[in-house]
Design a protein around this nucleic acid. Sequence first.
DNA 1: TTGAAAGCGCTAACAT
DNA 2: ATGTTAGCGCTTTCAA
Lengths: 375, 375
Amino acid sequence: MTDDRRAAGAPTLEDVARAAGVSRATVSRVINGVRNVDPVIQEAVRQAVSVTGYTPNRAARSLVTRRADAVALVVSGAGVEPEATREAPDGGAAGASGAKEAGTSGDGDGSSFTAQVFADPFFGRVVTGVVNYLRPRGMHPVLMFAESSRAREEVVAYLRQGSADGALVVSTHAEDPLPALIAEAGLAAVLFARPARPVPVSYVDLAHQDGARLAAEHLLGRGCRRIATISGPLDVPAGQARLTGFRDTMARHGNPYIPIVEGQFTQESGEAAMERLLAEHPDLDGVFAANDLMALGACHVLREHGRSVPGDVAVVGFDDSSAALACRPPLTTVRQPVEGMAAEMTRLLLDRLARPDGPVTSVIFEPELVVRGSA
Amino acid sequence: MTDDRRAAGAPTLEDVARAAGVSRATVSRVINGVRNVDPVIQEAVRQAVSVTGYTPNRAARSLVTRRADAVALVVSGAGVEPEATREAPDGGAAGASGAKEAGTSGDGDGSSFTAQVFADPFFGRVVTGVVNYLRPRGMHPVLMFAESSRAREEVVAYLRQGSADGALVVSTHAEDPLPALIAEAGLAAVLFARPARPVPVSYVDLAHQDGARLAAEHLLGRGCRRIATISGPLDVPAGQARLTGFRDTMARHGNPYIPIVEGQFTQESGEAAMERLLAEHPDLDGVFAANDLMALGACHVLREHGRSVPGDVAVVGFDDSSAALACRPPLTTVRQPVEGMAAEMTRLLLDRLARPDGPVTSVIFEPELVVRGSA
DNA sequence: TTGAAAGCGCTAACAT
DNA sequence: ATGTTAGCGCTTTCAA
């Protein structure tokens, strides 16, 4: 069979039609499950298909249907140019031997961005949610990164040339120009997280403020009196919202001023932030970190300083990512149902493709407190 | 412009040709950079392209070139059916509220596999390497998972219908039937890691045994006398090879018997293994873990038991993943240049696509000891 | 150096 | 219910 295909090219509809003694159109109907086909003929066609080893040619089909039956999953970065890595990259991969890495892989550029992206369990969860929704529908995501303006152009071009029918966009920073670019080009997309400036594109998001409120109330409820927070980057909407929600709740409970150190959602930045917090407020007894990675870093530092968690200091994280269970003790955290959100984002996109004139909608998920050992 | 495109459909070669006052063929030549085109006309065509906002239609092009200009990046799983998750999934995501997750995402199946895959920093690094090589060439990977026989069939079908020109296959377990399936179908692929049973397909791999030797020699060199190892899963070739390399070296240095506990390459399994090791050999002073995640887990447990690292027990990991730097103290580890290996794997595949009759080759990378704080 | 014309494999009217 | 036919947008001989 293999040899047949190689020698004569893959079998086409024509071949199947001939083998089954019917027309191409009929074969096409059977293959695409269009009704109005005599069951007997259907069977004959199926036989012919398996005899010939026929597989539909995607390009030919796409050319006429004008559908690629593919979607892009794009991780979008900051609004500016190929920025140099801010501080220490994030952890191992790029850190220890960055120079060698660039040399080995043959393409130094952009390396730090993709490495950074996958260092956070968050993206793996997004992929999981997207794939879970797509797979049963016979689709698979094309992975793209859009951290520079050049890369963003490429994403737009990719969609424009019909390589994918639409894009699932996950932005790592606010002010990301990609959503607007896509919208202007009249292309289909759905975002993970509300865009900083309004864009006529659907999105899914989490009620971050509510989540932070849950964290604050939990800390308060267990009797913490001197509470501090390690916020996310303040130029990221989610970072802002979590801080605002936390602060507001604390204020409402009579704590208008709380120590804040800004982190970058990385374990390292969490460690640095905790060091500072501890130096400036040695008496604190509760910490809310805006994500689990930073909470994990904070726990490490607390232990190094001989503070027990949650005995001396209670720690609450955010996300309920794999880092929460990896931590000792396991983190009490605010659960963000990333997989479900990603699946919903995918559903919204496919909906949109099916009905291009459907409404632009947004779905906001509710967070949930998960109590474990750390607070 | 947007409106034009919507109203009249995307501009085609024909439109550009008309605008430039030349034939479709000429426009095609200019766009594809074929020589023998009058510079003046070239310029005119370029003008027309930008005026019309033309973008080549990928399906049409693929139909005639018989190239998709796309490759699949497939993460392939065990040889058996949709196996139930072995033990605790891997960490947070699926753990805390797995039931709810399945409900939310609408598709319970397969979820654990993808989640598990991205829990290890390894895959993020593979993606980084692949993307770094592909991007400058205008290509992007289609992400696929092949953990069940059904999923494997889908991968083969995907390639057969020309959705991708070839596959980059990363197997998580030995005895993976996918490479053979692909080879039998006469499709192009390159593997990350040598297949368990020989298959006529190119691959990249690491000299695992040499890496383990480096670890053993380092431990021995710093004076450790009672050394144990936490191996990887023994049904994974890399796990086997690292154990063999370690054992052989130890034996050559007069230590024929060393305590071994098998892990699963997860942090949790590393913790469990370390607990056991400590219970059975309370006097050990050195540990080689077959990957960083397990080494990280081991370090946690050691600290919990009041053993200092590396003071009381020296720990060496493997991979030099982000986990190595996340660890306290940072891990001394054997570096596997995953990004470079993934880039090379990609290069091999594109080579193969360019010259289908080129030789099947394998490229073996040499590991390197990275000395940090843990040993 | 350029143009004309023939398909690539498929779907979707339209006819029957 | 089935067949006929006309393209989808592009590349690529083959002529000029």
